[in-house]
Structure formats: C-alpha cells, structure tokens
Nucleic acid binder design. Sequence first.
DNA 1: CCAAGTACCTGGCTATGTCAAGTACTAATC
DNA 2: GATTAGTACTTGACATAGCCAGGTACTTGG
Lengths: 123, 123
Amino acid sequence: MAENDPQLLKGVLTMVLLTLLAEEEGYGYAVVVRLHELGFAGLAEGTVYPALTRLERQGFLAARLERSSSGPARKYYRTTAPGLDELARSRRSWEELVAAVGQVLESPAPGNERDTSKTKKEA
Amino acid sequence: MAENDPQLLKGVLTMVLLTLLAEEEGYGYAVVVRLHELGFAGLAEGTVYPALTRLERQGFLAARLERSSSGPARKYYRTTAPGLDELARSRRSWEELVAAVGQVLESPAPGNERDTSKTKKEA
DNA sequence: CCAAGTACCTGGCTATGTCAAGTACTAATC
DNA sequence: GATTAGTACTTGACATAGCCAGGTACTTGG
C-alpha cells in the first residue's frame, strides 16, 4: 500500500464518501479508519473532515449528532437524494476517465502518424 | 463524452502526457487534439501547455523547437529517462487508486457493522 | 490529575486544472 | 496588402481540494 499521489485523489474522495455513506450511515472517524483498510493508505483526517463538511454544505450529505460513551459526540452522515444524483454523475465521470486513461496506458501500437496540419508540405 | 470533472483529472494528466510522449515525440497542439480524440473531451490548451512546461522544468520531458510551414514553430517533447521512472511510479499509484476505488464502488454487501470503539458499551 | 484513545475542526499551504486573453507565424481571400 | 482563419505557444488570475499542524473536547484508567 504505497503512498497515494495526493493529486490523484482529487475528486475521487467525494465519490467514495458518497458511496460509503449511501450504503450505510457513518461518522468521520470510522470512515477514516475504514478507508485506510480499503487501500486509501495515507488518507489524513484533515482531508476527510473538511470533505464531509463540504458535502453536507452542498446538500449531498445529511448529518446528525449522537452521543457516544467512548468519547465525544459522533457526527453521523448519510447520503441524501441529491447526493445520490451527484454520485451517479460522479461515477460516470470516473468511468469515463478510467476508460480514457486505459486507452492511453494500454495503447497498442505507436505507428500512426499524428499531425494536425494535413501534411501538405512539411519542413 | 460528458464533461470531465476537473478534479478527477488532477495528477492523471501528468501520467498521460508522459505515456504519450514516451511512445513518440509530439508537440503541444497535436497532443491536445490527440487527447480529445482519446476521450479527454473538455481538456483545454491552457491545461496542457502549462503541464508540459512543468514536466520539462522537472526534467521529465525534453524539448526541441522545430519550424513548421503551417504556423509558428512547434515545441516537440519527448519523455526522458527520469520521466520514465516518474511514469512508472505514477502508474503504480494510479493502479492502486483504481483498485481501491473499485473495492468501494463494487462493494458487495452492506451488512458488516463498522465501529471503531470495541462496542464495549454503546449509547 | 494526567495520559491515551476517540472524535471533530480549522487555518494556511500547495499543487494543479481552468479561463481568458494575448502573441505570433502562415496561407488564403478580397 | 490588409484582413481573416487556422496553427501554435504563453501567461496571469482564479478556484478547488488535499495535506499538515495544531487545537478542542469527551471518556476511561492509572
């Protein structure tokens, strides 16, 4: 589980959070732990909490507080209906990206000339 | 080919550019056109050129100018040896990310309780 | 009382994609 | 020969979102 490239994560976290919290309600701390288990190794709390707050502010997550006997109150989040829409959109973008990247990475043969000018007369 | 999420592209572009320019030399404008064909629909010139410049500055790409009869001189880039190393690292991160995201998206059954506290006594 | 585990929040930093505008060369048209 | 359109590259100001460091606060146990 190597260090994840911070940049690669961008945008992905939103989708991941909406997915997890659509399946079942959860609170920040637990989500962080879960994500570490799922392969998002270096993921910091300072990344997840602001993301949850943002998604709530955007109406994609709903939150409720619940007292806990093992520490401070937990903020449970659940994906809302607009959140599900956003998730669907997000997944589509993700799949397109994966497809496009796949096409580049598994590029078959480097034999086709690419020249935007129609090769009328070249230097 | 829907609008790509700008955030999702982050970090990916670097990898894609290093890949394309490792296969064969190319100049910015042509790369932009090529990427559009490959599924990176909304990709702007203003995104690609700075990326190329950055990669050159970092030593991952080498550049040379070539006059053209169809417009201003073209700046041809080719991936360097360090660029190939970076590409390898980058691909690894990407594959890990795709795997991790895959695990979340195709999450099988939402039945397992996840609670960081060992359920000693819950509210 | 203090430490450690749980749980959340914030400010400042950074990286990078986007937009808009600009420069400049060539060829074709009027 | 000035204008326009296509080719080709650059840049500055902006927005987003992840990261780090540090802070707050509740609970339990020594």
